[in-house]
Design a binder for these strands. Structure first.
Lengths: 195, 195
DNA sequence: AATTTAACATACAGGCTGTATGTATGCAAG
DNA sequence: CTTGCATACATACAGCCTGTATGTTAAATT
């Protein structure tokens, strides 16, 4: 039985430190916002020093990027996990509901929809989204068009516009009643695309 | 004939100073973003001192708010000015085109769609938008529903979702070809709402 | 076992924000 | 017209934060 500092491999140390930093940073970025959170505060919460932070991340923004990447992946994972089968439009609706459910986790709207675009820029946020949640929407829409369930439209533009609608709905939703209202309206928007 | 310091009334001094600060701040916020723009830089460009800035504005964020308010009003003014008549849906489309045209003015997407929500929060941005461009969209949709040109749907939610789609399109648009593409897709979205 | 390299910790320089204090000018009252 | 107050600034200061440079310890390599 060992105490305090157990001998760890470098890889283990790195992973533990990075995880602690990302966890502490996520919590503070959510609570106070990116600009109002200082690195001294983050490292104190993570139980390391600023030296460790700047060893693993180029700067504060790089740490934020890691937090956003992590969070975006979690949202996409939940959508994929809950994806049902049925008609293409049914799948789109179900995916949307899963998205709303995932975005209801506290802090996600702030990280992914408010601070993210401002800190990292829309181009980088689009790139991150395209690897995660945005990818599921794109595949759903492409499948629906393929099946002839919605009219053929430029996929890039349609994804951007519907994705924006989903995002804004997630931002507006604060309780179950609002969830149902937005689900209904966005469902109508999608159904309006049928041939 | 007088030189240099002409005797000005206090009201004139105030208006001139505020205008110079807002103009300089707008330029720098657009060029470098809110966080990367320092108040020393702003006051230097405006030809005043930091004392003047903090006399007229509570803090840097209040100055940013004034810039955003000004810009948002300019967008709404352009939409109203270009609003044509015709069927309700035609007016919506024309209003959308005017919106895209107004948002093409350099810096507006960054101020109103990227930094604005992050710095001021979505609630405050919604309030500002509701007084300006968002108001025109809401009135257009309400009129279209009244005329029976689109199905009756919850107005608040529909405004939020379509407003988000317009915003994202404005962010994505970088040239005329893209403008046409997004106009077409957003037109299809609106037309899908017909009874 | 010796050497290199990774993973930190500490110290420092520069810059920025907001506030406190000082000054000059407009303005209103007598 | 001058006397007193308020407005519109300018200057100086304190505190904090970011990023970097330097030092130290432990792991990995040879």
């Amino acid at each position: 039985m060992q105490e305090g500092t157990v001998s760890r491999t470098n890889r283990e140390r790195t992973e533990a430190t990075r995880a602690a930093l990302i966890k502490a940073a996520r919590s503070l970025f959510v609570e106070k916002g990116y600009a109002e959170t200082g690195t001294p505060e983050i490292v104190a919460a993570a139980g390391v020093t600023r030296g460790a932070l700047y060893h693993h991340f180029a700067d504060k923004q790089a740490l934020f990027r890691a937090v956003v990447e992590h969070e975006s992946a979690a949202v996409a994972e939940e959508i994929v996990r809950k994806s049902s089968d049925g008609t293409a439009i049914e799948m789109l609706i179900a995916g949307g509901n899963a998205f709303f459910s995932a975005m209801a986790v506290p802090g996600r709207t702030r990280l992914l929809l408010l601070d993210g675009p401002a800190v990292l820029g829309r181009a980088e946020m689009d790139a991150i989204d395209a690897r995660h949640a945005g990818r599921t929407l794109r595949e759903g829409l492409a499948y629906a068009m393929e099946q002839g369930e919605i009219r053929p439209l430029p996929l890039d533009q349609l994804c951007a516009l519907l994705g924006a609608a989903f995002d804004r709905a997630a931002l507006a939703i604060r309780n179950e009643a609002e969830t149902a209202e937005y689900q209904a309206v966005i469902g109508d928007l999608i159904k309006g695309l049928r041939p």
